[in-house]
Write a protein that binds this DNA or RNA. Structure first.
Lengths: 119, 119
DNA sequence: ACGCTATATTAGTAATTTCGAATATACTAA
DNA sequence: TTAGTATATTCGAAATTACTAATATAGCGT
């Protein structure tokens, strides 16, 4: 059986990543740290919005930050998270293949004309 | 660079898992399919609530369902998701160890008395 | 057809999330 | 100290989520 604490931990990680902007941020940090400003520039979003998303990522223990002079550099706290994203990429393409395969089946079984709206 | 579709897909998977009840459901399905009723029984939650969570898991492509007579059996759509949960388990214990280690450091460096509130 | 069981859906509400605008804080350079 | 730059926080509105209660649907046995 799984402990309550572990389940809560997983929930928080998933909540932390349950937003396209935050996923994009983590992906941008894949190859190393970046300043908040760089992230904002690459994402093309409002400064306040980026800062809020970074606060969520910090709160959920997904990233860590390091202050250097005027700037704050962010990096991924644990490489395990990158692994997670990579697994999902594989999953995504597997599903994509399944879908394409299914569409091909459908296309083979029914002539195109039947899928076109008559007028 | 990552495609928009892939990022959206990841976001939806994370949203799907960003809830302790739904994580518990997926964990319960780890070793094979279970009926909705069994899940409700094991989780001890409202029937309607469970059904809604299952609808989310279906919508996010996390589980698939199979109808057999009166009942509906759920199973995990792709084992990759179990892998993801396992990676996070490892991450969790790693962080736990770090925390324990840090607490030990703190304890060694400062005598207990300094942590006790004076009156 | 009827009642019974399993599951899903809808409606209403409270809590949470997301965003932009405005403001605050921290550091640097002059 | 003042001005400028980088980042964080607060506030309020709109959107989304999670829950309970009520209702609906589907299959089974009689």
């Amino acid at each position: 059986m799984m402990s309550e604490a572990l389940r809560q931990f997983k929930t928080e990680i998933f909540q932390g990543l349950a937003n396209p902007t935050r996923i994009a941020m983590v992906e941008l940090l894949r190859d190393g740290e970046l300043s908040a400003g760089k992230l904002i520039e690459k994402l093309g979003i409002e400064q306040a919005n980026a800062s809020q998303h970074l606060a969520v990522l910090r709160a959920k223990q997904i990233v860590v930050s390091r202050k250097a002079g005027n700037q704050v550099y962010y990096s991924i706290r644990d490489h395990a998270l990158i692994e997670v994203l990579d697994i999902l990429r594989g999953y995504f393409y597997a599903q994509l293949n399944t879908t394409v395969h299914m569409l091909k089946e459908v296309a083979r079984e029914s002539p195109k004309s039947r899928l076109i709206t008559r007028r």
